[in-house]
């Protein structure tokens, strides 16, 4: 384990320490960092409406991504676990495709598909929805995020739905239950832990996405992450970038703890 510990010290513990330290530093555009110890970055983040909006927008995008992923994830997970064998393998392979392809390439594809002269926008214009824009809007970002992260939701739901005893569903069916009633009374409640795990993973990863909001937002829609990137690279304001990073990390930890707590409660 020794080599791993060294790697982790240099590439994991030290970086986190630096982020934490810099988040309490003072920054001046002309003089740079002063090495001070102050909470002014956090005060700025939590009191400026600009950053409040940023955090709310980031959480909103992640929430929409998670909800849509769950909505398309359930039918897919049911088809994969309950469907005939050939369909199972084929669907699983197709779900894995986005996981295996570079996020940059996928996002590039979406930027072409969603562009103002693209097929989707032209269709919207044709049916009188020209006011709905796709590229450089939150809608476009959510489409890109769902495409990138919904496989995590599907994999997590497949495990949970696969563990349900099918005979309970068959019993309900033979007693005359409708399919929607079976889903809401039997399948959904028994796969809640999978839904919680998949949702936490989808939420956390889509909230931390950089490539998708940067390309599909085109600088017009920013998230915590794109601002961190801009502050760290072009603006060189490392203390502000660090403070936003700590906030992002804090939200991530809260969600993971909540999910662990929900799972423990469900299994008890």
């Amino acid at each position: 384990m020794a080599p791993m510990m060294l790697l982790f010290l240099a590439g994991f513990v030290a970086p986190l320490f630096f982020v934490l330290r810099f988040s309490f530093d003072h920054f001046d555009a002309s003089a740079g960092q002063s090495g001070a110890f102050t909470a002014e970055q956090f005060i700025a983040v939590f009191t400026t409406p600009l950053y409040g909006d940023l955090i709310v927008r980031t959480l909103g995008l992640a929430f929409a991504t998670t909800a849509i992923s769950a909505l398309i994830g359930y039918p897919l997970a049911l088809a994969i676990t309950r469907g005939p064998g050939f369909l199972r393998g084929a669907l699983m392979a197709i779900v894995m495709v986005p996981m295996l392809t570079s996020v940059v390439v996928k996002t590039f594809g979406w930027s072409v598909l969603l562009s103002s002269d693209g097929f989707l926008q032209s269709s919207l214009d044709a049916i009188g929805l020209a006011s709905v824009k796709l590229l450089f809007t939150p809608i476009g970002i959510v489409i890109g995020l769902v495409h990138t992260y919904f496989p995590f939701m599907v994999l997590s739901l497949v495990t949970a739905v696969g563990a349900i005893d099918r005979r309970t569903e068959e019993a309900a069916e033979s007693l005359g239950s409708t399919r929607s009633r079976i889903f809401f009374r039997i399948t959904l409640p028994q796969s809640l832990d999978g839904l919680a795990a998949g949702s936490a993973l989808t939420f956390v990863t889509s909230m931390s996405a950089l490539v998708t909001p940067q390309i599909l937002g085109g600088g017009k829609v920013s998230t915590i992450v794109t601002v961190i990137y801009q502050q760290a690279t072009s603006a060189q304001n490392w203390p502000l970038a660090s403070a936003l990073g700590v906030v992002l990390l804090g939200i991530t930890l809260v969600i993971l703890v909540l999910q662990a707590w929900a799972v423990r409660r469900a299994t008890r």
């Binding site: 630096f18 909230m207 961190i228 760290a232 990073g245």
Partner: peptide
Amino acid sequence: IMLPGVVLGLGILFV
């Protein structure tokens, strides 16, 4: 695996 990539990128940039 669960750490946001930006935070890691930022930290490694500093180091």
